[in-house]
Amino acid sequence: MEVNDPGSLTPEQARALFRAGLRVPTAGWCAGRTQANLIAVPRDHAYDFLLFAHRNPKPCPVIDVTEPGETTAALFSGDLRTDLPGYVVYEDGVPVAEVTDATAYWRDDLVAFLIGCSFTFEGALIEAGVPVRHIEQGGNVPMYRTGRACRPAGGLAGPLVVSMRPIPAGLVADAVRITARYPAVHGGPVHVGDPAELGIADLDAPDFGDPVEVRPGEVPVFWACGVTPQAAVTASRPAFAIGHAPGHMAITDARDSDYLVP
């Protein structure tokens, strides 16, 4: 299934394609519309996750939460079980299935959290002339587990996950300034420069997503990433959870401009 201009689609059109089985990273899709990470946990674990997000707001900025069992959200009028391009199902912290339709795994006690996504500010970067390499290359953003621990909460603990975009050295200050104006979707970067300072050994071997070219004169810039909750699931081993496939986001009804602060 080929999509010639995914940026021109509405959220409804994109969701229909995903519901029909299209699996594809969503960077650059539905221009101007906010994308979100998904993590759904049983009601008994929802408070722990909400506390984890409160204590780690940079990687886990919550933009919407459902009631137990609900399959839509205020910001997402589609079906959370079918209208993302990919899901990962966890049992005891272990990925047991990767699917394009999570209906068979969805439970009546699941509380779904939508977490802000750095794709939200990529349009602003491009408009300002700051390159976004994974979009240029038609791939998924590279994401890395770091050596930095998140602040634990209840039964949840785990490492900070970051996304990386190589930025020309002369544009790094612009990238920091632009993204800092989107605090509800990760905001400014958590690190600029040497990946080893984050405990990342090899930029060409991301834990999630695709490697991208870092050209001469470019600096790797790292933003907190909404895959962090799934890293906490893997580390803490709760009995059950469902997350989005990294980079395969929930395209919400909200607009990127809703999260821009003066």
Rank of each mutant, 00 (worst) to 15 (best):
I178F: 05
Y47A: 14
P262Q: 14
G123T: 07
D44Q: 05
D64H: 08
A53Q: 04
P216T: 13
E12Q: 14
T66Q: 03
C117H: 04
P229E: 12
G116L: 04
V94H: 07
V172T: 08
M249F: 11
L156C: 02
N4C: 04
D5R: 05
R19Y: 02
D204T: 13
P216W: 13
S257A: 15
F52A: 13
G155M: 09
R237L: 03
F208Q: 12
G93T: 07
Y87I: 03
R23E: 07
P42Y: 14
A36H: 04
T103E: 07
D207G: 06
I178M: 07
D109M: 11
V111H: 07
C150V: 07
N140M: 12
V185G: 08
D258P: 11
H186Q: 10
M249V: 09
A169C: 00
F113L: 10
N4K: 15
V62M: 07
D109I: 12
G116F: 01
G187A: 05
G116P: 04
Y47H: 13
L198N: 06
F119H: 09
P229Y: 07
G78Q: 03
G116Q: 05
A239K: 10
A153L: 10
R15A: 10
E197T: 10
A14D: 08
F49P: 00
R133M: 15
G158K: 02
A173W: 07
Y105A: 08
L75V: 14
A224I: 13
